[in-house]
Design a protein around this nucleic acid. Structure first.
Lengths: 344, 344
DNA sequence: CCATAAATGATGTGCGTACCTCATTTCAAC
DNA sequence: GTTGAAATGAGGTACGCACATCATTTATGG
């Protein structure tokens, strides 16, 4: 038997098409009793609304805004590229995308950007920003307008987000540690570098990293994390200094952005290839470093998948459809020289 | 401006709707000159057929057959599970799936199964079978009926397939070698095991493995591959024997199926945790072995992605739509204890 | 029992496309 | 120019649903 249609529901429930329509689209003027009757029939026949026919009839458009950190971040740039890519594929069907760039470290600017969005012209919001009280409040207001909210890359656990698309940072840190432990050739110290330990991601990665190191590799010591506070020069000099002064270093883990500075320091130190190096996120520089054997492994997430997932999830949320979890679960990818994807 | 419709094309081209329809659906009775005129207008306005409206109008159904190896293969089983999963998600829209199990090593049985398919009731065919001349010929016939053909997991490079969904086996072997080289703690020999080196996959993996080993890890020697010829007991005894008699073994790589036997041999040998072990495909046993630290790494492909990709590609092929390559490119995944996906 | 409001039914149109029929025009060959 | 075939036009119905209008029925309170 074919999929039941609204006609089947009407006939089986003993009501008119108009009433079925009222129930389906939550219009007013139907007794609870009738609503129940129709819903029972829907459940009984296993009716599922034909989304494409519905979208055709109502000339639906999905308008989504993506809020991304501005500035020269390679990772954010790759997300922007993935969004452009997705836009020229089938998932762009009936889709209107708006990409909004905000200064990542200025909560007020982020809030201004969020509040400048016209809720009537918006169906969903995907954001990759740090969680602050200001952002949380702004999101609460947006949520009340009935707009779907998806956190990307970094979760917003205390905000009214509907979904999180990204990887578990603690698990990513644990993965890096396991890899580092297996790669390290002798006992010694492991150097960690990041822009700022105030960022949730860096913190969680460090947490995961330490946990595995302590449990499984007691012969390796994790020394205090180097922080650059978004200053590339500072990062390079700090890492360079450590590489030069500490022969007992047996591993280097770049936890966040700042990969470029770390790579420069590494090259200047002439310790390339001597100690295992692990970084995060697959970008042109890390890709090149993998190929050149300067970096042993990159922990990454598939940004193409990331943005497609965010779009699919926002779509489902907008239509109150179930989310197909297995497809939206982002993997922690381990990328070596030999399993580099052809691009992206 | 909104997307142009057939009406816009008709008006702009100065022809009637009926003619546009004739051109769009390649019906007879239109002069070449008119066809060109309409196509020019289509190109000029950037018209793209609204697939969902078209599917609605013609009550389209996509009927795809999946041909998979029968028998107790964990990997094939996980593909079947992924197909069932996909069936209850959005990508199942207008989809009719048929799963056909064939004895993988009996080309004639495979051909019989292929020829038993009614081409009029089929839009696409996805298969995971070894390439033989018989299969190749049968596929040629099926292809002539206008049915889209996708090779899954193992490519069919000499057959008239339209697309391949899967990973590059040589690269997978190279990845395993790179990992093994970095994991191995001392010089020595590496043991490889597979069901049969006659299989293209095993051959290619071995090729890739050897290439990287020779180039980057000269202190490691790859000894001749153990073949079980689909006999689990034989596999277990052979691997067990090697593990016992060869203390100079410093690594174990299970290239194909037969993981269960290898695991059993490993446990009996009491060399668990002593040498790095790498296997292929994420299945319940390899997953458990990862968690138990019996296996260090699993080289895998995401079967959920695999089947969704095959479905999407078959759809696009059926409708003569472009394939969005970045989304269909399957990655060679490296799975460790710490980045195990929650399921699947 | 009536008045009134609330609930429901009946019916039509449109979304963008496919597909069908029948009438009309155009073209080419003679 | 006539003729016959080929090409094109005109118009309708359908797909499954959304949305609107108006008529009719049913419940509710007095």
């Amino acid at each position: 038997m074919d999929r039941p249609t609204v006609h089947d529901i009407a006939r089986e429930a003993g009501v008119s098409l108009a009433t079925v329509d009222r129930v389906l689209n939550a219009r007013a003027g139907v007794r609870q009793k009738t609503i129940d009757k129709v819903n029972d029939t829907i459940a009984r026949l296993g009716y599922v609304r034909d989304t494409s026919a519905a979208n055709l009839a109502r000339q639906r458009r999905y308008t989504f805004a993506f809020v991304l950190p501005e500035g020269p971040s390679q990772f954010a740039e790759s997300i922007r590229a993935a969004l452009r890519d997705a836009y020229s594929s089938q998932i762009a069907d009936r889709l209107v995308l708006r990409i909004i760039s905000v200064p990542a470290n200025d909560p007020h600017a982020i809030v201004r950007a969020l509040l400048s969005l016209d809720p009537r012209k918006l169906d969903g919001l995907a954001l990759m920003v740090p969680e602050t009280p200001q952002v949380r409040d702004a999101l609460a207001r947006i949520k009340q307008e009935g707009i779907a909210i998806v956190a990307m890359v970094s979760d917003l656990p205390n905000s009214p987000r509907d979904y999180f698309v990204g990887t578990d940072s603690i698990a990513a840190g644990r993965t890096a540690a396991l890899l580092m432990g297996k790669f390290a050739r002798k006992p010694g110290e492991i150097l960690l570098a990041t822009n700022s330990m105030r960022s949730r991601d860096s913190l969680e990665r460090r947490l995961g990293f330490d946990a595995v190191m302590q449990a499984d590799f007691p012969h390796l010591t994790v020394i205090p994390t180097i922080e650059s506070f978004d200053d590339p020069e500072r990062m390079e000099e700090l890492v360079f200094g450590m590489l030069i002064r500490k022969p007992q270093l047996v591993g280097l883990y770049s936890m966040g952005s700042g990969n470029l500075s770390v790579l420069r320091a590494l090259r200047r130190s002439t310790r390339v290839g001597e100690i295992p190096v692990i970084m995060h996120e697959l970008t042109p520089p890390t890709r090149a470093a993998l190929m050149a054997n300067e970096v042993d492994a990159v922990i990454a997430q598939n940004v193409g998948h990331l943005v497609r997932s965010a779009i699919r999830v926002l779509r489902s949320l907008s239509d109150n459809l179930p989310i197909f979890e297995p497809q939206e679960r982002l993997r922690i990818e381990i990328v070596l020289r030999e399993n580099l994807p052809e691009s992206g």
